[in-house]
């Protein structure tokens, strides 16, 4: 692992800016994440949280600033992009499972074709992951036959199958019925305890309090405040932060 000047950070973002046409969605965002760290990003709707984490695996392209993931700089070089993507898992609000493939096929597809793992091994690994997220009995079903919570757990297993070093979560529980949120958060907590580096956009403050090493508050495309969960609950500094917290707590 080649280390950049910023010490032993696995994600380094420096002065990242991003525009959609004329509209600036990110303003000089700088954030570095250490291996095994869990960072929760909060902020009002439209503040640029999704845009930020989607820049990290190049689902969106930033226009200025540097993003370096596991020592690989994110440039126009397609090889770098593909390498970063295969080391970075992402879980979406809408699950985005492949509806025409079974759960097992959803999980094994990328390992087989990107990592060139043979089919039997990929399936064995997939079953182990389904066990880990608690739904081994659903392996042969199609996504449309599962509940939202089960689908999201499959999506997590699908990302983990690529053996990523980093996991990005974009509001993974926002599309779920309340009774299913816990089953997904439990899986995420277990993942955090196992030492995965995680960047999580969520408004589940209970989750943040329990597992986050740091919380980042974004507003208007900027990082307004960074601190421990403790810090946010007890002495948030900025007015905007306080206002936001008062609305969601």
């Amino acid at each position: 692992m080649s280390e950049q000047s910023n010490g032993n950070h696995i994600i380094v973002c420096k002065d990242v800016s991003k525009w959609y046409g004329e509209f600036q969605a990110l303003r000089d965002v700088s954030l570095s994440v250490k291996p095994q760290e869990v960072v929760v990003i909060i902020g009002p709707s439209g503040s640029g949280k999704s845009t930020f984490i989607r820049c990290i695996n190049r689902l969106e392209e930033h226009q200025s600033g540097d993003i370096i993931v596991d020592g690989i700089p994110l440039t126009h070089d397609v090889r770098n992009i593909e390498q970063i993507r295969s080391e970075t898992g992402m879980v979406f609000q809408q699950f985005n499972l492949f509806p025409h493939l079974t759960v097992l096929e959803n999980i094994t597809l990328a390992p087989i074709h990107v990592r060139k793992v043979n089919k039997a091994e990929a399936e064995e690994n997939a079953m182990a992951l389904l066990d880990r997220v608690g739904i081994p009995e659903q392996a042969l079903k199609y996504p449309g036959q599962l509940s939202g919570g089960q689908q999201q757990r499959v999506a997590i297993a699908r990302s983990l199958a690529m053996k990523p070093k980093i996991m990005l979560f974009d509001e993974p529980t926002s599309a779920l019925d309340p009774e299913m949120i816990k089953e997904v958060l439990d899986v995420m907590k277990e993942l955090a305890q196992s030492g995965m580096t995680m960047l999580v956009v969520t408004h589940e403050m209970g989750f943040a309090k329990e597992v986050a090493d740091r919380v980042v508050f974004m507003d208007g495309g900027e990082i307004v405040e960074v601190g421990t969960p403790q810090h946010f609950f007890e002495n948030a500094q900025h007015e905007r932060t306080k206002l936001f917290l008062s609305q969601i707590l």
């Binding site: 993507r85 992402m90 985005n96 990107v114």
Partner: peptide, 18 residues
């Protein structure tokens, strides 16, 4: 096909061809 399908495939590191 919803955008999410392309994004999920990209996020997994699948090439355009795959």
């Amino acid at each position: 096909i919803p955008r999410g399908q392309y994004e999920a495939a990209d996020a997994l590191g699948l090439s355009t061809f795959h």
